[in-house]
Write a protein that binds this DNA or RNA. Structure first.
Lengths: 206, 206
DNA sequence: TGTTAATGACTGTCCAGTCAGTCATAATTG
DNA sequence: CAATTATGACTGACTGGACAGTCATTAACA
């Protein structure tokens, strides 16, 4: 019977612990099926304590989902700076960062949450459109336009539809979330095959 | 005060009405947030009546989600039969059927439901993997292998990763479901651009 | 010892599922 | 063919359980 000790904490840290626990719960069972008691238990505290840091369940969810994505963008944004690198390398880096920072972490459940709960929380959807999608597409558009100008694209029209480049990333997440248990999908192969399709082959022979 | 009359119905028809109402409700608000009373109200009947046709909420959901997809597959399957048609036309037809039968109908909410509620209803996920994904991928694999053999693919390796061809369809659905309100995505253009990228240009000059 | 974070029993609400009763229709009878 | 009875689809008030959010009490720390 491990006696739970009361333990005071730095509020900042406690807050972070609650958010982490909440993310785990929401990712696992969705908004409705997650009980505030579950979140508390997972954070190793009592239910009431959660309410000392967040006014209610909805706000906890919104702050949580909004707070997870932001840090990634900076790194992706850096991609567009380097004018020198070939577009293919830039897009490859896009996938690489996505893979490392989203697909292979718990963040992969984020899309599921947004897709699932979005209609109930328009604030969240709007936030993701404005902060993530818009910016991601803008970056891709620049990189693709440059690639088109340099003749690196097999089909220059792709530069007008950057969503096409996001599509394999989306597929990898959906697959990982839903079907990975039934059949493995090699995300790297998915990305590489797409890159080989998108860009004209480089000069180098074997 | 439109007085609701009692009205007996052919059980088959009643059942269908309930399923239609339930689909509308679940698609709109998700499993948890949908009240059985909502479903009943939407079907124009009393709550108790729903329970004459479905044992409980969960079974209603499962039967619903399982019943929606099946009819489409036959048509898609027909695609593979015609060995004569160019692979590009076959894949274009795949997108076309998808667009007409899913994207532009209420069925577009299906993916959201599966993605959102899948983890809570493994039966549903398994059903979709087995009945839809597997078969769709198998068809694409055949078409793509044929295309590769005929030299129609810019990158023959695509034949190994049919998920790549599904990715734009997935993107179109996710976009339509989440972001269409903020920015329109032209699905036809998405598909056409991808087809132009995937397949070697046809001989015909302008 | 006073201050403040933490606790968990408690309250009010919401909803899935039940079931005793209703009534439209069909079957039976005179 | 009108009156009577039987059927079962339909209804909606009700119950029991679950859970979000509260708050009086308790423990930790200064």
């Amino acid at each position: 019977m491990a006696e739970r000790k009361r333990e005071k904490r730095d509020p900042e840290q406690r807050r972070a612990e609650i958010l982490a626990a909440a993310f785990a719960c929401f990712a696992e069972r969705g908004f409705a099926a997650t009980r505030m008691e579950d979140v508390a238990a997972r954070a190793g505290i009592a239910k009431g304590t959660v309410y000392l840091h967040f006014p209610d369940k909805e706000r906890l969810f919104i702050e949580l989902v909004s707070g997870i994505a932001s840090p990634i963008l900076g790194e992706v944004g850096g991609m567009v700076e380097k004018d020198a690198v070939p577009a293919r390398a830039a897009v490859a880096m896009f996938y690489s960062i996505f893979k490392r920072e989203v697909l292979e972490t718990e963040r992969r459940h984020l899309l599921r949450l947004i897709l699932a709960e979005g209609p109930m929380f328009p604030v969240v959807t709007e936030f993701y459109y404005r902060e993530i999608i818009t910016k991601g597409l803008a970056i891709l558009r620049i990189v693709l336009a440059r690639a088109a100008a340099r003749g690196e694209l097999r089909n220059p029209a792709v530069a007008d539809v950057p969503q096409l480049v996001m599509a394999p990333a989306l597929m990898s997440i959906v697959w990982a979330t839903l079907f990975e248990g039934y059949e493995h999908l090699d995300a790297q192969k998915l990305f590489d095959t797409f890159l080989d399709t998108l860009f004209v082959p480089q000069g180098g022979a074997i």
